[in-house]
Simulated scan of single mutants.
Amino acid sequence: MTNRTDPPTEARLLVHGGGVLPGLPESISNVRDLIRTLVGDSPTIEDALLVATEVATNAVLHTRSGLPGGTFTIYAEVRAAGDTRTLHLRVHDEGPRTTQHDDPRPADQRGRGLMLVDALASRWGMEPRTPGHVVWLELDWKEAE
């Protein structure tokens, strides 16, 4: 979890969206579509797509959301404070399938998603919920003048 910078204060809501999605790999494209719609052509679009994809994919692959009949909920919004824009993203899953979390080995092709989120997000964290938990993140950028 990280808190490298303080969030902008007194931010006004610009756009928002979200919904409940089936816990299927095919739902990840819906997540990317939502982020593209909200973030548009901002200078941080690639980072926003990557972190949103990672968090939603974790919900599908590593929680009960990815089991038959499972779902996850996504909510995203963009707020403005002066020339700073902030993407707020929350993914609520149905809870862990297992409590085992091994660190990835150098040759592993998986297991680095939250490291990417930590490197790219301005702030992020996890909060327990009943059921499951919420992974949230914020990504700041300066609006071009």
Rank of each mutant, 00 (worst) to 15 (best):
T2Y: 00
R4Q: 12
P7F: 06
P8Y: 05
E10H: 13
E10M: 02
R12I: 13
R12H: 09
L13T: 10
L13I: 05
L14T: 07
G17W: 02
G19T: 09
G19K: 11
V20M: 06
L21H: 09
G23Y: 03
E26Y: 04
E26W: 02
S27F: 04
S29H: 10
V31S: 01
D33L: 14
R36V: 12
L38C: 01
T44N: 07
T44Y: 05
I45W: 02
I45A: 07
A48M: 04
L49W: 02
L49E: 14
E54P: 03
V55A: 10
A56G: 06
A56R: 00
A56W: 00
N58C: 10
A59G: 09
V60Y: 01
L61K: 12
L61Q: 14
L61T: 13
R64F: 02
R64W: 01
G66N: 04
F72P: 00
F72M: 01
I74F: 07
A76N: 03
E77Q: 14
R79H: 09
R79E: 09
A80H: 02
A80T: 09
A80S: 14
A81I: 05
T84N: 05
T84W: 03
T84K: 03
T86P: 04
T86M: 11
L87D: 04
R90S: 15
H92M: 09
E94D: 12
E94W: 01
P96G: 03
R97M: 13
T99C: 02
Q100G: 00
D102K: 06
P104H: 10
P104L: 10
R105S: 13
R105T: 13
Q109M: 11
R112Y: 15
R112D: 08
G113V: 05
G113W: 05
M115F: 14
L116V: 15
A119Q: 14
A119C: 08
L120M: 14
A121Y: 09
R123C: 11
G125S: 09
G125R: 05
E127G: 04
R129T: 15
P131L: 11
G132H: 01
H133F: 15
V135C: 07
W136P: 06
W136C: 08
W136K: 04
D140S: 12
K142L: 14
